[in-house]
Design a protein around this nucleic acid. Structure first.
Lengths: 122, 122
DNA sequence: CGGAATCCGCTGAGATACTG
DNA sequence: CAGTATCTCAGCGGATTCCG
């Protein structure tokens, strides 16, 4: 059971977190990098995808980068990895609940980037 | 005046842009990096800020990183830089219209990062 | 099929010092 | 006040090869 003291400490901690820029830095540590948002975006559009399916859809990505990015996203609780024990091997990736909260941001960023890429070609 | 051929080409180009992951990669090229979102976030909260004001509010940033980040954001049309010719020098930074479109994404990412930082401390 | 291991270049990030 | 000029360095991103 939390005592008043603990509650006060937690509130204090929350204020420090909110007032500093570390929140955005923390977010970018997880979401930054060349391939992370593209992967999340593909998984959002297709619900669940297999490794090579992802690889084909992300034009230009290499095995290493796909593996690393997926591992990082999994460690941070953004992506589910389900390994089906069968031959041939089959692994399915999907977004976690935790990540669904981010989808509006993905959509906004995508639309923004799209408008600006199309605009540039004029 | 655009001919049918030009219109078709533009539509084709738009489809290619939309279908590929390059949109997200392009967005991350501009928004990625440790300090860019934190800077945009501060400018969004305070409307317009001076150089040293930004620097003080972004705990831990160095002159080099602030200068570089601001330059990059300005080149990409996300930030206005207004230099007032007076002594002492005064330079004001603010978000551009182009960037306002991104604000919902910033808010979503901030809230997500905040929840997750506070949650981790339990 | 779904990766891991190794190696490597480039550049983002920073420390330090200086300037109009 | 609002930056620049150098220099350094870790690590991100990538090419290539190999594996259960």
């Amino acid at each position: 059971m939390p005592y008043l003291e603990d509650i006060m400490k937690k509130i204090e901690h929350e204020e420090i977190v909110s007032s500093r820029n570390c929140v955005m830095i923390h977010a970018m540590d997880i979401l930054g990098g060349k391939w992370r948002l593209p992967i999340l975006w593909k998984l959002y559009q297709n619900k669940t995808m297999r490794y090579n399916e992802l690889k084909r859809s992300l034009v230009g990505i290499t095995n290493i980068m796909l593996t690393r990015s997926l591992q990082s996203l999994e460690e941070n609780g953004l992506v589910n990895r389900v390994e089906l024990n069968q031959i041939p091997p089959k692994v399915e990736y999907s977004l976690t609940e935790n990540c669904i909260e981010l989808v509006p941001a993905l959509e906004t960023i995508y639309n923004w980037g799209r408008d600006r890429m199309i605009g540039q070609s004029e």
